[in-house]
Computed example of a mutant assay.
Amino acid sequence: MPSRLLPLLIVLAAVAAHAEKADRLKPMVFTQDKQGRIDSVNQRTELLGNVIITQGSLMLRAEKVDVRETRDGYHQAFASGTAGNPVSFRQARDVPGESIAGTADQLEYDTRTETVRFIGNANVRRMRGTTVADEVTGAVIVYDSRTEVFTLEGGSASPNPNGRTRIVMMPRAQPGDAAAPASSAPAAALPLQPSTTLTPPRKAP
Score class of each variant (00 low, 15 high):
R71A: 12
E46L: 11
E148G: 02
S158T: 08
P194I: 04
P200E: 05
Y74G: 00
A178D: 02
Q43M: 09
V67N: 08
K64S: 13
V95N: 01
A79V: 05
T131L: 06
T103K: 13
D33E: 15
V168A: 05
T147L: 09
A180Q: 05
R61G: 02
Q43Y: 00
I10P: 12
K64H: 10
E20Q: 15
T130E: 15
A133N: 06
I167S: 15
Q76N: 14
F150W: 03
A101R: 06
L198Y: 06
V142D: 15
A185R: 13
V116Q: 10
E63C: 01
A79W: 08
V142E: 14
V87P: 09
T111L: 05
A185Q: 07
Q76P: 00
R125F: 07
P186G: 06
T131G: 01
P181R: 12
G49S: 06
A189I: 02
A189E: 12
A62H: 13
A17E: 14
E108T: 13
R71W: 12
I53W: 03
P186R: 03
A122G: 11
E108L: 10
G81R: 03
L192V: 13
V136M: 14
E98Q: 11
A157E: 15
D72M: 07
L6P: 03
R68P: 01
P171D: 09
D177H: 02
R117T: 15
L8M: 11
T147C: 01
L25V: 06
V116K: 02
Q106L: 05
V65L: 13
L47C: 02
V168H: 08
D177F: 01
T103C: 03
A133G: 03
G73M: 04
F89C: 14
A189K: 00
Q106K: 15
P27S: 07
A19T: 10
R90I: 14
L58V: 14
P159S: 14
R146E: 14
L47G: 05
N121F: 00
V95L: 06
G155E: 00
E98L: 07
A22M: 07
T151F: 08
L198R: 14
A182P: 00
A104G: 09
R117M: 07
H75I: 03
T45D: 07
P194T: 13
S3C: 09
T115A: 03
M169E: 14
A83Q: 12
M1P: 08
A173S: 15
I38G: 06
S40G: 04
R146M: 15
L198H: 14
A101C: 05
M28L: 15
D110I: 07
E20K: 13
I38V: 14
T70M: 09
E135A: 12
G120S: 10
V168W: 02
T199W: 01
